[in-house]
Design a protein around this nucleic acid. Sequence first.
DNA 1: AGCACGCCGACT
DNA 2: GTCGGCGTGCTC
Length: 734
Amino acid sequence: MPFAQVALPIPKRTLFTYAIPDHLVVEPGSVVLVPVGRGHRTGVVWEIVEQPAWRDGTILDIVASHGDLPLLGADLLFLLDWMSRYYLASIGTVAAAALPGEIAFQSRIRVRWVGDAEEPPDLPERLRPLAERIRKRKEGLSLETLAEAFGRQALVAPLRALVERGLVSRETLWHAPLPDLKPAVSATSACASRLDLTDEQQHCVDRFHDALSNKTFAPFLLEGVTGSGKTELYLRAIERCLELERQALVLVPEISLTAQMIQRLQQRFADTLAVLHSGLTAAQRPREWWRIRRGLARVAVGARSALFAPFADLGLVIVDEEHDPSYKQEGSLSYQARDMAAVRARRCGAVLILGTATPSLESLANVQAGRYRHLRLTRRAGGGAPPRVEAIHLGDPELRRQMGKDGLIAPPLRQAMAETLAAGRQVLLFLNRRGFAPSLLCYRCGQAISCPHCSVTLTLHKNRSRLLCHYCDYSRDPMDICPSCGQLSLYHFGPGTQRLEEETRAHFPDARIARLDRDAVSASAHLLDETLEAFRDQRLDILVGTQMVSKGHHFPGLALVGVVQAETTLHQPDFRAAERTHQLLVQVAGRAGRESRDGRALVQTLDPEHHAVAAALGKRDDFVALEMEFRRQAGYPPFRRLALLRISSGMQAEGEGYCRVLRAALPEHGDVLFLGPAPAPLFKLRNRHRWQLLIKEREGGRLHRALPGLMSLAERLAGSRIRLEIDVDPQMFL
DNA sequence: AGCACGCCGACT
DNA sequence: GTCGGCGTGCTC
Ligand SMILES: [Zn+2]
Ligand SMILES: [Zn+2]
């Protein structure tokens, strides 16, 4: 009798063992319904074994199975296995992430006669018709059938009476529902309005077509400025992929999965397109998954989780805006969808296209190592000049005097805004807040005080008046004199986001102003759409945003983008701060130049010479080389891998005690170095105190040779109230 | 993750 | 005297 090892969406490391009843078809990858505790849960069959792997209790039966076609094919089972080992997560956790929510099973109630063959003589007259009906059918009959004969209401009381007398049994039978394969969004028929290609574009298309025809793994980094026509290339590659009878997956950052983007794909692929966005209902989501699994949908577009779209023969994976940090899922399971897309593509023998205007250093390192092929689009598809981007040097003493102590908008930006509004056009003000932490900054030279060991910006803790490194726990008293320019010019650099909207209103009392930030967006998805729509239709004059909206939106009236302070990104306590700043500024410039020929961007900064800023302004072209060198010297990715062990506890003393014990128990290791544990930048979050231990690969070492042992050590030392989370390739250090 | 069981404050 | 707070522990 075979048994199934089932992965369940519970944070327990082990698989659960169930018996497979004869009447069910169950294979690895099947979605099954199993009894857990007092209820039922859906899980994924991981493997079939002849001997039960668990003997400490009663093994229960699988109740139902979507077994005729396992939802997860061999390539996805491979990917999940790979992920569980790379990210040190349980199979159950990984499988839960791969499933489109709870997959429905249907139940019906079967009623059966269990009394003597003869009807008991003392049975009251009112129960006799029902008893007679049930007794005649030895194998039992469904509640539905009885309800049709007797009426649903009239059935309840007599049936209960028969059950109480022990004459009739009721049992719940579960079964997989018949597939409903209607698309969640139905489309008009596909039309092939294809745009003409430039020579550059044609060259790329040829490379993609060649690679697709080979049906082997072929990774490309497609670097192209905003407006260079990457999307059209994606569409051509997908068309070719479909001709070869294989399927295509398109990953996009959550924020760019817009109606315009979807429409563009639908025009080409109509009903063969599955759109996997977070707005799908709990019923629609699995339905889209099954459409993909059964081959009705052959192209899927979606954010992170679309990575797990269950295609039969995946031939092409496109990751648009591959540098976007939102591909990194944070939480109980932390994974980088872009990297996992590469793992899956390799396994499937698929072509991988990573598209972006500002490649991540990770992808560029893959190019430099000869693993990825680099294709470039240097020209804007419609012609057009590169956007005008200029810096406003906030360190200028005259400007500082004019702005006052708390001013955020410098006179040149203010004047540009006034001119723009006077011309009846629109302004986008951008102040990044994501990943921000207070620091000590020099207003003359723009330098932030950074850690002598880790080269990341030190975080300023005002209440304790200390500068603190959240990588290695180094701390020191705040100084008065800037170590890089020797002036008495250091100041506490705080967020000031709330002030920006007020100051804007004060400067432009008659303008129609709206604010768009993460809090507003997460509060309601509609608010985002409504605000963007209002801005597009020019019912707003100024949009103050903390998150850049870039792809899939056209704002015809937009003529000026102002970055209020580059330092909010540049001096985050994160080794990727410069890379993020560069990406952001290039994106802002592209956004400004996209709508009109005379669109421009103004960047307020204390350090216009910083390589990330100057490069985005078109003043230098060595950003990548300089940043690579910094990473190499400081020992950060893409040269050395990192993992972050997040430690949290409800009680501060207990957490501190654990950190001390852990620190003392950490062995000298040939593969990794340990930094910390240090208090996390957001030390108290949701009533828990948080620390983090940074684990850094040594030169020539291998992170994953050390991690499993480390994790079991850390777990062994932890009491039940200490929570541990491991984040491999961390992206956020808050 | 759910969903139980299990021991201490404010209520009919 | 109870109702209910969520702390801790288990689920094949
Ligand atoms: Zn440090
Ligand atoms: Zn200075």
